[in-house]
Computed example of a mutant assay.
Amino acid sequence: MIIRPKLHWFRMLFVWRGSVLPQLLPRLGLIFALSVAAIFMHDHMRHYPIGLGTPPFALVGIALAVFLGFRNSASYDRWWEGRKLWGSLVITARSLARQALSMPHPRDSVDTRRFLAAIGGLAHALRHQLRGTDATSDLAPRLPPELHARVAAAQYKPALILLWLGEWVAARKREGALDGYAMLAIDANLNALSNVVGGCERLTSTPLPFSYSVMIHRTIYLFCVLLPFGLVDGAGLLTPLFALLVAYAFMALEAIAAQIEDPFGLEENDLALNAICATLEAALHDMAADPAFEPAPPVSRDPSRRFIVD
């Protein structure tokens, strides 16, 4: 994801990176070519074969705008739920770290650091699972060797890390570092983390119905392809301008909805999971107040454009 500062309204007109315009240019080029063909046919063919007029497009356009509104709302709901789930992960992980650091009878700091590092590793494991990427390079320096050996071969790595966190808490209870109430409070936060993992997996495994997306996609492109032939009678030489404006609006909305439907992906409008993981680990480092506990590397920035690249 690209996280930008607020831009002036005029600069917003020329933003390139992070917009869907680059991927729409070939399609808009096709609409422009069809508009030029419609003008040529209208002006140079004695028996103009297609005289659609604007009323049919007005009716279809209104219906299409309503369907696109529902499509975008459904996709944005998924993006927003993913954002809330990862926000809950950060909040719950901080609470879990605070509980571990403030145990009535704390164990040695090295053991507690292993617990905090595993919490950060949980966030990275979930990020890689949702994106289908290799987690080895991020998990190896964060997890204890015995835990990393267990997790490396697992399909659902976050669940295994949660199991280890629960085992760590149970071991502290047996040693007398935690009483029953403290263990219940920590277990509630572990359950909350498990709910976050399950919620993210649900979003990833249950996309919007494919037939619904295909229907809207086909209708948009059929509408945009025929639009120049309906505008040419009234717009004349301005047909390419109006056809491109309408096509850009409809195609861009459909492209944005397709991007944010999977909020955990790697496209420029998906959630900034790298930045969220770095934020969590920075908070864990500050809470530990231990120079031996390594902070997360900073999130990359583009110095020339002053935005965060995830």
Results as ranks from 00 to 15, higher is better:
D134L: 08
T204K: 13
S109Y: 00
T204G: 08
S205W: 06
E201L: 11
T112Y: 08
G132Y: 13
T204N: 08
W164K: 00
V197L: 00
S194N: 02
A154K: 14
N191S: 04
P104I: 07
P209E: 00
Q155A: 13
A149E: 11
F115R: 08
V196S: 01
G132S: 12
S205K: 10
L203T: 03
V169G: 08
G176W: 06
Y181S: 14
Q155S: 13
R202V: 06
I119R: 05
A153V: 14
D134N: 15
V110E: 15
R131M: 14
D108N: 14
A159I: 05
K157E: 15
N195R: 12
Q129R: 15
L178H: 09
C200E: 01
L163A: 11
L165D: 01
P141M: 04
I186K: 00
T136K: 10
A182G: 13
V110D: 14
A192Y: 00
G198E: 08
R174W: 01
H124C: 07
W168S: 00
A125M: 04
S137Q: 15
A152I: 05
P104L: 10
G121Q: 05
L203E: 02
D179I: 04
L163S: 13
V110M: 12
T206F: 09
G120R: 03
V110R: 13
F115L: 07
T206I: 04
N195T: 01
A192N: 01
R150Q: 15
A149D: 10
R172F: 10
N191W: 00
L203Y: 01
A171P: 05
L203K: 09
A149L: 12
P141L: 03
G176D: 04
P145E: 10
A140S: 11
G120P: 06
E201M: 09
G199L: 02
E175S: 04
A177F: 02
K173D: 05
L147E: 08
M183W: 06
G120V: 03
A177H: 12
A152N: 14
R202Y: 08
E175P: 05
F115C: 05
R113M: 09
L130C: 15
W168G: 00
L160W: 01
W168T: 02
I119N: 06
R113E: 07
A170D: 11
V151M: 09
T136F: 07
E146M: 11
T133E: 13
V151G: 05
R114G: 10
G132W: 14
E146G: 08
W168R: 07
L160G: 02
R142K: 13
T204W: 01
I119F: 04
Q129T: 14
E175L: 12
P209A: 02
